[in-house]
Design a binder for these strands. Sequence first.
DNA 1: GGTTGACTTCGAGCGCGCTCGAAGTCGGAG
DNA 2: CTCCGACTTCGAGCGCGCTCGAAGTCAACC
Lengths: 142, 142
Amino acid sequence: MSTDTRTSAGSGADAGTASLSIAEAADRLGLSTHALRYYETEGLLVGAPARTPAGRRRYDEQDLRWIVLVQRLRATGMPVREVREYARLCREGAGNEQQRLALLRAHRERVLAQLAEVSGHLGAVTAKIELYEGTVGTVGDR
Amino acid sequence: MSTDTRTSAGSGADAGTASLSIAEAADRLGLSTHALRYYETEGLLVGAPARTPAGRRRYDEQDLRWIVLVQRLRATGMPVREVREYARLCREGAGNEQQRLALLRAHRERVLAQLAEVSGHLGAVTAKIELYEGTVGTVGDR
DNA sequence: GGTTGACTTCGAGCGCGCTCGAAGTCGGAG
DNA sequence: CTCCGACTTCGAGCGCGCTCGAAGTCAACC
């Protein structure tokens, strides 16, 4: 309630480039405003969002897209420290594409390995479930 | 070096039932002795391991099998508190098989959902990688 | 001009799952 | 008998990733 009207006011407020307040951005990304500021101070963003003359953050599409990537990396288990490293590489501009690539590839390998491991364990749990389904009358399991 | 000889000494030390010291069990399970005791005090074990007259823990095959299950549950992301709950149900004996089943099924559903989510995010990361591979243009490639 | 309330910074606190260290006990080898 | 080292319990500490609250500022609306 009340986060209404004046949505993308600020400066331009016209076609194309939206520019959201932190609350709007948080809402759209499914994060808290606290988390968004945390990401920023922790150096997870490739570039800090713009500020209004009064010092308030404005998130544009580019900011949002980057944060979505950060969320994906985080959601796949990349530690904050490594996201920071990746962000740093991107911030430094061209010339380190190989490093970025290596970082992402290493991450992908880890995630694949973990997916396989979890799947394996899940298989065992499923077997256990089926055992119960078949045995829901027999006591001696454990 | 020195966790040698006297491996499964203790009492019997014969065929079939081994009965390991905490260090041996930890070693075999890939856990620390600290973690093993922690699991026990936190109620994650369905039954406490036996003790020697001197009060030292002896892990038998049943203990080990249970702990392997605990590890699988943990490795698939089940919170300690929920493992404790499951252990409690098993400890209470017969009559609650449906509850155990429900717990395991719910866990499986969560894990499947998370596997799907992670896979999705990983797909996006892979796309990013391929983008770099294309951009970097035939550099190392292989 | 006053009120409102979303914003700002800062630092403390928290939930999780162990991990670590201290201090003491005890069984077995020499 | 003595020593060694693996065991015991206990409680504190830690790394991670936020989360939360306090205190203050400032733009906009009435």
